[in-house]
Amino acid sequence: MQTYELILNEAYRLFARNGFEKTSLSMIAKEVGITKPALYYHFSSKEALFHALLQEVCKEIRFDTFFPIKEFSTENFKEHFITCGLKMIQEQRNDPHYSLLMKEFMIQSTRDEKILEAVKAVIDTYVQGFTALLMHGVKLGVMRGENLGVRAEMLTLVIDQIDNYMTLGLAFDYERIWQYSVEQVWNGEINT
Rank of each mutant, 00 (worst) to 15 (best):
M27T: 14
F15W: 03
K36V: 14
I28S: 10
G33I: 08
F50L: 05
K36C: 11
L49E: 01
A16V: 01
S26A: 08
K46D: 05
A11I: 00
E47G: 13
E31V: 03
N9D: 14
K46T: 04
S26P: 02
A48V: 01
F15R: 03
L25C: 07
L49A: 00
H51T: 13
K30E: 14
N18W: 06
G19D: 01
A16T: 04
G33E: 09
A48T: 01
K22Q: 15
A29D: 11
A52E: 14
G19L: 01
H51C: 13
S45E: 03
S45H: 04
L49F: 00
L39F: 12
E21D: 06
N18E: 12
Y41E: 13
F15Y: 05
A16W: 01
A29N: 13
P37W: 03
K36T: 15
R17C: 13
A38H: 14
P37V: 01
A48K: 03
K22H: 14
Y41V: 10
F43W: 01
S24N: 08
A29L: 09
F20H: 05
E47H: 10
T35R: 07
Y41C: 04
Y12G: 04
L39M: 14
E31D: 12
L49M: 02
H42N: 13
L39G: 08
S44M: 08
L39N: 12
S44R: 13
F43D: 05
N18D: 14
Y40S: 07
S44W: 00
P37M: 12
A38I: 02
T23S: 07
A16C: 06
F43Q: 10
F15H: 03
A11E: 03
M27N: 12
A11W: 03
A38G: 11
T23H: 01
L25M: 14
I34K: 13
S44A: 15
N18P: 05
L14Y: 06
E10R: 11
K36Q: 15
H42W: 07
M27H: 12
V32L: 07
H42M: 09
S44Y: 01
F20T: 02
N18T: 05
L54W: 06
Y41S: 12
A48S: 04
E21P: 00
K36H: 13
S45I: 00
L25N: 11
A11K: 02
L14P: 06
E10Y: 07
A52N: 10
P37K: 08
S26W: 04
P37D: 09
L25S: 07
P37S: 11
A52M: 09
L39T: 04
A29R: 11
L54F: 10
H51F: 11
